[in-house]
Amino acid sequence: MLKNVFEYTGKKVTVFFFEAGKITSLFGQVIYWTFKKPSEVKSIFEQMVIIGNKSLGVVTITSLSTGMILALQTGTAIERKISGAANMLGGIVSLALTRELAPVLIGLVMAGKIGSAIAAEIGTMNVTEQVDALKTMATNPVKYLAVPRFIAAIFMLPLLTIYADLLGTLGGLFISLNIFDGTTGSYFESLNMYMRLDDVFKGLFKTIFFGAIIAVIGSHKGFETEGGAEGVGKSTTSSVVISSMLILVTDYILTAFLW
């Protein structure tokens, strides 16, 4: 029994470090090829459109509803003890959004939307020999497939987060005006009082890491895909799970260092 427990644990630990080694190796290759000319400019812009423009809908809904829920919950809680919650809502909502909620939520949503798409697309290319075909045409698959997604993700996630910060703040304003009888002036006055510009920048800084995590894990899972449609499904799922976990852990580490 005890032997089995040790065997099982040993196996899991070995698999963990093996996987971590492969991810680190891919990350190293991505960084190397990112600075190697010629750049895949066309592909980078295509990926930027896919990651950025085509994610606006989901980011809009996520950030608006988060801002509104945040305002509603905190406003209701404050109103229980003191009146005039509306005067503080701008600061609370924008601070929570810019420092934490928008970066992490956009990171998690994009891990689901983009990370899974990267894993599925590269995974399908892998099992249908398209990745091998690239190699036979003297084209490095990391440079051609992973690097454009990596660059697009680390550029577009901060931009999407700025958009989410703005929309979430407006969602909070909507609740402040309609539920707590606040005014636009008092909302932005409180925002101005509590928030500093570096809150926004530190939140955006985190999303660069989240973008890197999503692109590298998605690409890694894609390149490791085996076994047809079932393999693609497994890669897609595990890409989302690993990216999400890493985003949360990285968020804690970065938060501890940044503030």
């Binding site: 697309e121 399908t124 290319m125 249908t128 020999e129 398209q130 091998d132 075909a133 190699k135 036979t136 045409m137 003297a138 490095n140």
Partner: peptide, 24 residues
């Protein structure tokens, strides 16, 4: 190494079983 392989692969053409055309 990778660079040497890429050089020699420029002399090759390969037709895959599934054709392996790039979908996109």
């Amino acid at each position: 190494d990778t660079a040497g392989l890429d050089d020699i692969r420029k002399h090759f053409g390969m037709l895959f079983q599934s054709a392996a055309l790039f979908d996109s």
